[in-house]
Amino acid sequence: MLNPQWLRTFLALRDQGSFTRCAEHLDLTQAAVSQHVRKLEEQLGPLLIRRPRQLELTPAGHALLDYCREVGAADQRLRRKLSEADDTYGEIGLICPGSIGLVLHPMMLALQQENPGLIMRQRFAPDNEILQAVLENRYELGLTALKPDDQRISVSRFTEEPLELVAPASERINSWEDLARIGFIDHPDARAMGSRLLSRYYPGEKGIDSIPSHGFTNQISMILEPVARGLGFTILPRYARLAFQRPDSIQVIDGPVLVKDTLWLIHRSEWPLSSRAKWVIEELSLQVSSL
């Protein structure tokens, strides 16, 4: 790696146009300026053509000038990334379940549009992958339905999310027999969610496995499409239903009790959150609480 002091001298020499003015500008001797240039030229070849009252850069000199500019820009990016002074500059990495992710994604994009210095990086994942990604520092922030018990993880409550029984708007659902008649739209978490919710809504019935499956998808944004087309019902977290673009084609069937999960915000406890991460979480929390 090239000596940073030699690079500063080279930049000053190019800007000042003479060894004398460069030495005065840097509070160095002319001999020191010449030595710095000579050290660079020993590694890179001739950098300057010395003419009376004029210095001209060689092709190697121009290449070194471009390198100096790149180093300077990288230095500024690093300082901005580590700075606590600007909440609206830098990258935010969030990994979360798909349901809350569907709601947060447009909110995060809106924040980025309003603050072009932000870079939003979001991934949907199951709870075990979320925890591992935060532990490995691949994402600064995570949201998970399972509260971690790990001293390396800082945990705080973000919001609560009820489970919902969602059926086609065209169907009248008054009993367990109605659910069995229209069938079930399955997804990777549907049976676990269905067992929890339906045992509260319809105690004493046979359970979710006794209802015929009329479809399956592993894409959370597509689960409600067959429901909207009248092909069956499903069980989903509320935020997935709120993100669906055709709410008039579906209905939520209320039950005697509310079955809900807490979503936990997690990050590494060994170092503090960046100021921009704190600010983004505060903005998202306010918007989610208004839903």
Rank of each mutant, 00 (worst) to 15 (best):
L197M: 11
F124Y: 08
T88E: 06
E177M: 07
D189A: 08
P212H: 14
Y201P: 08
Y201M: 14
K81R: 15
N137V: 00
R181T: 04
T159Q: 13
G183T: 06
L78N: 10
Q151K: 10
R138K: 13
T88I: 11
N128Q: 12
A74T: 05
L198Y: 08
I119M: 08
R121M: 00
R77Q: 12
A110W: 04
Y89R: 06
R181S: 08
P106F: 12
R80G: 10
A110N: 08
E84Y: 09
L82W: 10
I185L: 03
E140R: 10
I92R: 04
A192D: 11
D189K: 05
S83P: 00
D127Y: 10
L102P: 02
N128V: 04
Y139P: 01
Y202A: 04
D178V: 06
L135R: 02
R200L: 09
G90Y: 02
M108I: 05
I208V: 15
E205G: 01
Q151T: 11
K147W: 04
P116W: 01
I92E: 04
S210W: 13
S156P: 13
R77V: 07
G90M: 01
E164V: 13
D178K: 07
T88G: 05
R123H: 01
F124C: 07
M108G: 08
Q113R: 13
R196L: 15
D87C: 09
S83I: 00
E136S: 11
L165W: 09
L135W: 07
T88H: 09
P106Y: 05
E161A: 07
M107Q: 07
D186H: 02
L143T: 02
E129Q: 08
K206Y: 07
D87S: 09
D86G: 03
P212T: 10
S199G: 09
G90A: 11
S99I: 02
G98W: 00
G101E: 04
L146D: 05
L131E: 07
L197T: 02
P168G: 01
D75H: 04
D87H: 02
A192E: 14
R196I: 12
L111T: 13
A133K: 03
A167L: 09
F158T: 02
L102Y: 00
P148F: 00
E205K: 13
T144I: 01
Q122D: 02
L109V: 08
L102D: 03
T159A: 14
G142H: 11
N128C: 01
L179S: 09
A110C: 05
L109S: 08
D86K: 11
L111H: 12
E114M: 14
K206D: 09
T88S: 06
L111I: 14
P162H: 04
D75F: 09
D149G: 13
K206L: 15
V166Q: 15
M193A: 14
L146I: 13
Q122S: 05
A133F: 00
G93W: 00
A85N: 08
A74D: 06
L104Y: 10
R172G: 04
Q112H: 10
R181H: 14
D75S: 07
G93F: 01
A190D: 05
P203T: 02
S210K: 10
